[in-house]
Design a protein around this nucleic acid. Structure first.
Length: 491
RNA sequence: GGCCCCAUCGUCUAGUGGCUAGGACACCACGCUUUCAAUGUGGUAACACGGGUUCGAUUCCCGUUGGGGCUACCA
């Protein structure tokens, strides 16, 4: 049984890099008919953020990443957990880690360390000065016997527990994405496993939990690759089966450094609030490092689940490119049926003066701008003219190859024409047919008629075609707007 | 500094020893057109470098260079 997990630290927002790692783990599990788990890695007390887990869950839900096990929000919005391997929150598992640390010490895989922060710091600077690899020198392992350590702990002395890395040999593993990776053991630090506050570090907690939760494939960011030998050593000491590892490449800033807050919008929530569709964002980040092996690019969530394979994940990092995201978003927007688009757009329209009760008109208005917008947040400003004619100067009504007098004449003649169209003929194509025919009869050209008409109807120099606007507005309002334009031209 | 990872158009990428090195975004030109989009057609643009291996390397090996990650009682 394939079991993967997403194990973020609850920081208050979901970093896009983490979201993509989660997505890969999720897609892999789904593709293999496996199980996908969320585990909250909150072992750093100083990083505690109120409401972070709730936010995390809402964001994953928005992105369409569904969880089989782990925390979830119940009907009342309260935090709950599902699954047989809980708790899925590390701060609730402290006694578990204590137990395994004791076991590890007993097995000779770890030891107590009483060194002060000052000594550690001096040690590091000295090592760096002498161009030596940095790392703990094993002082407490050499000088403090288990009996003495027990005594010092008894007396209330602060301590940490460190991993006892073998001083020789190599740790070799085959990464699912990168192939064989090897490290010399002597260069690997005796990592702290249990902090002096009694909390485990990532390295201990991740191994204990991945084992206990029966994770078969550890899919995580490339930045973890150097600590993998420490984790493997832990599995060995415990005598546990070592899972498969897959280290996915990083998302990069345009200068190729790790995608960061400083250089861009890294929080998934920012894209949500700016009106990106989750399926577009997911499609986009999936393609940052993955491809189906052919030239298709548009994959909805179901298609991603069906096609995603780890062997098409690339090794190199990928630069985040907002323009490509915009393109994906436009593609999804264009393909969406108007009713659905209205439903999705409503949260963004709620902050505008656009009335949301007239579903019919709203749907027509939205359809008008559907192919012209990039994000949902652009929709409100784009369709606002339908509900409220914007202020505009009379000069806007004059086409660049025409005159004010000519525009006045044409708009005046247009009113009776518009009036002769019957109610049932008030549709885009029929309005267009009538007006174009009339233009022909009169010997006008399109520009000198359609420009002033369009501006009269929209109040804007840039807008959809006049026939579409007229159809949305209705006959009465359309004529009214042309009359308003006439009044403006007459001064 | 040490260790590790990586390297095809500006960006995301296909390629798996023999191709005019393909696609997408972006960009440019033209077409359509009342405007802005959308759309159609076409175009500019890449195998980091040096050695091997081979009849033949973008592709395999080594090195160089470059970039990145890690190097905490943070994840």
């Amino acid at each position: 049984m394939i079991r993967t997990r997403f194990a973020p630290s609850p920081t208050g927002y979901v970093h896009l890099g983490n979201l993509r790692t989660a997505l890969f783990a999720y897609l892999f599990a789904r593709h293999e008919a496996g199980v996908f788990i969320l585990r909250v890695e909150d072992t750093d007390q100083s990083r505690y953020v109120e409401g972070a887990v709730e936010n995390l869950l809402r964001t994953l839900e928005w992105a369409g990443i569904t969880l089989d096990e782990g925390p979830y929000l119940d009907a009342n919005g309260k935090l709950a957990e599902k699954g047989q391997f809980g708790p899925y929150t590390q701060s609730k598992r402290l006694s578990i880690y204590q137990k395994y640390v004791a076991e590890l010490i007993a097995k000779g895989g770890a030891y107590h360390c009483f060194c002060t922060a000052e000594r550690l710091e001096n040690l590091r600077t000295e090592q760096q000065l002498n161009k030596l690899p940095t790392g703990y020198d094993g002082l407490c392992l050499k000088t403090t016997s288990p009996e003495e350590a027990a005594k010092r702990i008894e007396q209330g002395e602060k301590y940490v527990v460190r991993l006892k890395m073998p001083r020789s040999g190599e740790t070799i593993f085959t990464d699912l994405i990168r192939g064989e990776v090897r490290f010399k053991n002597e260069l690997i630090d005796d990592q702290v496993l249990l902090k002096s506050d009694g909390f485990p570090t990532y390295h201990l907690a991740v191994v204990v939990d991945d084992h206990l939760m029966e994770i078969s494939h550890v899919i995580r960011g490339e930045d973890w690759i150097s600590s993998t030998p420490k984790h493997i050593q832990l599995y060995r000491y415990f005598g546990w089966e070592i899972p498969e590892f897959g280290h996915v490449p990083l998302i990069l800033n345009s200068d190729k450094s790790k995608f960061s807050k400083r250089q861009g919008d890294v929080a998934a929530e920012q894209y949500q609030s700016r009106g990106y569709l989750p399926e577009a964002l997911v499609n986009f980040i999936a393609f940052l490092g993955w491809n189906p092996g052919d030239e298709r690019e548009l994959f909805n969530p179901e298609e991603l689940c069906a096609e995603f394979k780890l062997d098409h994940v690339s090794k190199a990092g990928a630069v985040f490119n907002l323009e490509k995201l915009d393109w994906f978003n436009r593609e999804y927007l264009k393909r969406m049926n108007p009713g659905e688009l209205v439903r999705r757009a409503k949260p963004f329209l709620a902050t505008t003066y656009i009335p949301l009760d007239n579903e019919m008109l709203l749907t027509k208005a939205v359809a008008l701008e559907q192919t012209r917008i990039t994000t949902l947040s652009e929709l409100g400003p784009a369709i606002n003219f339908v509900f409220q004619l914007p202020e505009y100067p009379p000069t806007a009504l004059v086409w660049r190859k025409s005159t004010s007098e000519q525009s006045l004449k044409i708009l005046t003649e247009l009113i009776p024409l518009l009036n002769t169209i019957s109610v049932q003929d008030w549709q885009t194509v029929l309005i267009e047919a009538r007006i174009k025919a009339w233009i022909g009869e009169q010997g006008y050209n399109n520009g000198e008629v359609l420009w002033p008409l369009r501006v009269a109807l929209s109040g804007q120099e840039k807008s959809p075609p006049p026939f579409e606007i007229a159809a949305v507005l209705g006959q009465q309002e359309s004529i009214h707007r042309v009359e308003t334009a006439l009044a403006k031209l007459q001064g």
